[in-house]
Design a protein around this nucleic acid. Structure first.
Length: 581
DNA sequence: GTAGGGTTAG
């Protein structure tokens, strides 16, 4: 039987004041008058609430002026500060604990680990970890879990995994930390593996598990698993909170089912700025600029206040749909109505938007007149893309040279420059740029395409030969290329000269990763007519874009490709992007 | 006389 103890009226008055500084100060005054100004438990509660109210200095004063300030008081403050998003204050309270030579508890370590995680302070975090082991907390599950989260936040996944593996009897929270850690570091496949391991271990997942796993699905384009998680949520009648709701919307949008995303969006009880932004970004990625703008107007009318991220989504949507006027208005209202300061991403989207629409002069004028100080490399990259798209080679060369001067060590700028030279027929210059690259051993990003079949992701790199069915896949692709050639496909050999930051020029276009992935998807479909879904890490190249249009028509199959920037829905020989990349 | 770890968008 648990004994119910009545709380003192003083304690109750603190609880009533809550994490609000004004009422807390009044309560503090009453404590002093009642002769409780030094009663440690009450001071502890008061100081903790003060931190929760954001008033760390006030709490600090309370702690410092107490003659017998104890470990409990200070570790409560560490925890409250870490929890309240005041990691620097949390570290300061932790240092007081150390300098006062007070005993440390597992509570102090979990709290300070979170503070280090929020600061991505790896060195301090490692010292804290070592200290915790030294004091005998090395096998405390709570401390271990906090360390997993810490190493994940600092990008030290192998270390995190080692700590995770050493936890005996891992709680659902430990699993969640590991899944989300992989996902947040771009290792969505690993995140999915851990989710599967968790199922095998028969640990009951909670909503945080699903949030992290759905994010991994969104990243990896793992639609089947995303649906599996959704079925679980529905059949278990789980409460779909704002996190889970946003994760579902995001998963469907990024897996290519923008209507399912909207369905969830409409159904959700709780929506915040993240939910709205995900939905708008989803429309944008699919080239549904009008829908994005419509939803944005609805948001302004009856939704939460848009933030800087919302505007990234809105401007990108306008850029991908050629909605120049709308984008211009949005950019204007972002500054004037919402007082937001545009960042590089916003400027980029604007340049991209003018550029794609062929308004190169407007884009240049925007760069000159609207962007304060010197535009970054991203802006010039967007400008260069526009020059290439609209075949303005002189301007393109000028822009590419600026880029190289700005970031000489970045290989993709040189690839872009060599493409521009190639496009304008200056093959001598192409060779020169390539030789510089070879000499300085600059390597470009390697392109790959993913296809998810029956819950397993198959990864293809250009010229890939490591797949078990390599021979069949290449043979299938050869036949497929014959069939589309009969239908009128002529390889865009100058496509080397198109979107080529992506894949090696020497290798024949036909072995580009997306073609291999599509061939594999078609080969393995066994009479299924479900759309083929491909995820590509870079932008799709012009020749592949053309070839897949033909494939969709010859094979009478919907093919959906998500590239670095957007979705391409290929159907009946057409693509939803309407050549508007 | 009190507290613990994990959680979404570009």
């Amino acid at each position: 039987m648990e004994t119910l103890r009545r709380r003192s009226p003083e304690f109750d008055s603190l609880i009533r004041a809550g994490p609000r500084l004004g009422p807390l100060k009044q309560a503090h005054a009453r404590l002093i008058v009642a002769g409780h100004g030094r009663t440690l438990p009450l001071v502890t509660k008061l100081a903790t609430l003060a931190v929760a109210a954001g008033a760390a200095p006030y709490a600090h004063l309370l702690a410092a002026s107490h003659p017998s300030c104890d470990s409990f008081l200070l570790s409560s403050l560490v925890r409250a500060a870490a929890h309240r998003g005041l990691p620097a204050a949390a570290l300061a309270f932790y240092r007081r604990l150390l300098t006062a030579a007070l005993p440390l508890s597992s509570f102090s370590f979990t709290a300070v680990a979170k503070a280090c995680a929020d600061l991505s302070a790896l060195r301090i975090g490692m010292a804290v970890h070592a200290h915790s082991i030294l004091l005998g907390f090395g096998s405390d599950r709570f401390v271990q879990t906090a360390m997993v989260a810490l190493y994940c936040k600092c990008g030290q996944l192998p270390v995190a995994r080692k700590v995770f593996d050493a936890i005996r009897d891992r709680s659902v929270v430990a699993w969640n930390a590991m899944i989300s850690g992989y996902e947040q570091n771009g290792l969505s496949e690993r995140a999915i593996e851990v989710y599967r391991e968790m199922q095998v271990a028969q640990v009951v997942p909670d909503s945080a598990t699903f949030v992290a796993t759905l994010s991994a699905c969104a990243q990896a384009g793992a639609l089947d698993l995303g649906r599996e998680v959704e079925r679980h949520i529905v059949s278990e009648k789980m409460d779909v909170n704002v996190f889970l709701g946003s994760a579902l919307v995001n998963m469907y949008a990024r897996c290519g089912l923008v209507y399912n995303a909207r369905n969830w969006f409409d159904k959700l009880q709780a929506r915040n700025v993240v939910t709205w932004t995900s939905m708008i970004a989803g429309y944008g990625m699919h080239g549904h600029g009008r829908e994005a703008i419509k939803l944005f107007h609805l948001m302004r009318h009856e939704g939460p206040t848009p933030n800087d991220v919302t505007f990234v989504a809105v401007l990108a949507a306008c850029a991908h749909a050629g909605l120049v006027t709308e984008g211009h208005d949005a950019f204007d209202s972002m500054k004037r109505v919402y007082g937001l300061v545009p960042r590089a991403e916003h400027y980029c989207s604007m340049v991209d938007m003018y550029g794609r629409a062929g308004l190169l002069d407007d884009a240049m004028q925007f760069i000159r007149d609207t962007i304060p100080e010197k535009p970054g490399p991203e802006v010039w990259t967007a400008m260069l893309g526009a020059c290439k798209m609209h075949k303005n080679f002189n301007l393109g060369v000028e822009v590419a040279e600026r880029l190289i001067a700005l970031e000489p060590e970045n290989p993709s700028h040189r690839v872009l420059l060599s493409n521009i030279y190639a496009l304008s027929g200056k093959m001598y210059h192409v060779e020169k740029v390539r030789n510089t690259m070879i000499k300085s051993r600059l390597k470009k990003q390697i392109g790959y395409s993913l296809i998810d079949l029956g819950g397993t992701a198959h990864l293809f790199r250009m010229g890939e030969k490591s797949h078990q069915q390599t021979r069949e896949i290449y043979q299938y692709l050869e036949e497929l290329i014959h069939r589309i050639s009969d239908a009128g496909y002529i390889p865009e050999t100058d496509s080397v000269l198109h979107e080529l930051e992506e894949e090696e020029r020497e290798v024949a276009l036909r072995y580009h990763s997306e073609k291999l992935a599509v061939a594999y998807g078609l080969m393995m479909s066994n009479g299924s007519t479900a759309p083929i879904r491909i995820i590509k890490n870079l932008r799709i190249c012009g020749d592949c874009h053309l070839a897949i249009k033909f494939m969709s028509s010859v094979e009478n199959r919907e093919i959906i490709v998500r590239d670095k920037h957007r979705f391409h829905h290929f159907k009946d020989g057409k693509c939803s992007c309407l050549e508007y990349w």
